[in-house]
């Protein structure tokens, strides 16, 4: 059981980064459906960064920068040029898939260099890893996963306990009111996209650098879309996003575990579980009507000062 949960956390990490990233963007009013594309770009950038520099830090930065760059395209088109968010997001996914396939072609079958892999080897956290059960599940992981915990904590504190987070939420709820109080709406949305997109890039980076031993084109495989569903599931709360990612991480490795237990069910049918679960999540979350669980009021609404 502990080993199953520990493996679920590994499978949950890419989802966690992407979900928190998308959540930050949505909180500012940007419904960016390009998560899959940003994750793909982060995956290939992380991989190329690792292969080129043999340095884990460079790999992480490249993954972040690629995701942030993708999100900047989105922000420029939707905030400055007021393009339709849904179509722009979809296009970003198509663009990201193309770029990743194109660049990744040369790296097919290559593996992540040793020094980077060594950096992301499992490292127990002194003290915390001695806690029975919890230590084994949460604190005998790799550094990338610990960064994920930190991101959840930082995002929660930032969004709900700081002035910057308040401004960001204000822009997402009611952009014209925020503008009237002197908040620079465009600046806030751009920043939310850069940070959120960067986190999506890191989520992809985890897949490209740590999760798969060799580069393959379909590393992301729909996880970006599951992250979009998880944002709804989490009711725009990073801590619930962590719980949701864990749930989906567990579902994702269920097939493998069932095989080990020699349960006879087709692997392909078990692989459907996360996707079916995402549908169930979307259905349930749109059905409940709790006030605090509603999406930001101005989600996917472009802001024109002229319109007032």
């Amino acid at each position: 059981m502990t080993s199953f949960l520990a493996a679920a956390i590994v499978a949950a990490t890419p989802l966690l980064f992407a979900t928190v990233g998308e959540l930050i963007m949505e909180k500012s009013g940007s419904l960016n459906l390009g998560v899959e594309g940003m994750m793909l770009m982060g995956a290939i950038a992380g991989f190329v960064g690792a292969a080129g520099s043999q340095n884990a830090g460079v790999a992480l930065l490249s993954a972040f920068a690629a995701g942030a760059g993708g999100a900047l395209i989105f922000a420029f088109l939707t905030v400055t040029l007021r393009a339709n968010q849904v179509v722009t997001g979809l296009t970003l996914t198509i663009f990201g898939t193309g770029v990743t396939k194109f660049i990744g072609n040369a790296y097919m079958g290559q593996s992540v260099p040793g020094p980077v892999r060594a950096f992301f080897a499992k490292t127990a956290v002194p003290g915390l890893s001695d806690i029975p059960f919890i230590g084994d599940v949460f604190f005998k992981q790799d550094i990338f996963i610990y960064i994920g915990y930190a991101v959840v904590a930082l995002a929660t504190v930032f969004l709900f306990k700081t002035r910057g987070g308040l401004n960001l939420r204000a822009v997402g709820e009611n952009a014209s009111a925020a503008d009237a109080t002197g908040i620079n709406v465009a600046f806030v949305r751009y920043m939310a996209c850069v940070v959120g997109g960067g986190l999506c890039g890191l989520g992809g980076g985890y897949l490209g650098i740590v999760y798969v031993p060799m580069w393959q084109v379909d590393v992301v495989n729909g996880r970006g879309w599951i992250a979009v569903a998880l944002v709804i599931f989490s009711a725009w709360n990073p801590i619930k996003a962590f719980a949701g990612s864990l749930l989906f991480g567990a579902l994702a490795i269920l097939g493998f575990t069932l095989q080990l237990m020699e349960v006879s069910i087709s692997q392909y049918l078990v692989d459907m579980f996360p996707y079916i679960a995402a549908i169930v999540v979307v259905i349930i979350s749109t059905h409940r009507n709790m006030k605090e669980d509603l999406p930001p009021m101005n989600l996917s609404v472009p802001y024109f000062r002229e319109d007032r």
């Binding site: 040029l81 296009t91 970003l92 663009f95 193309g98």
Partner: peptide, 24 residues
Amino acid sequence: PAAVAGVVQGTILLFILGSEFFIQ
């Protein structure tokens, strides 16, 4: 690599989306 088609398609659409602004 044939994947260049994806890059070309994505880029074209991004540009068209952007230029819509100057029409509106």
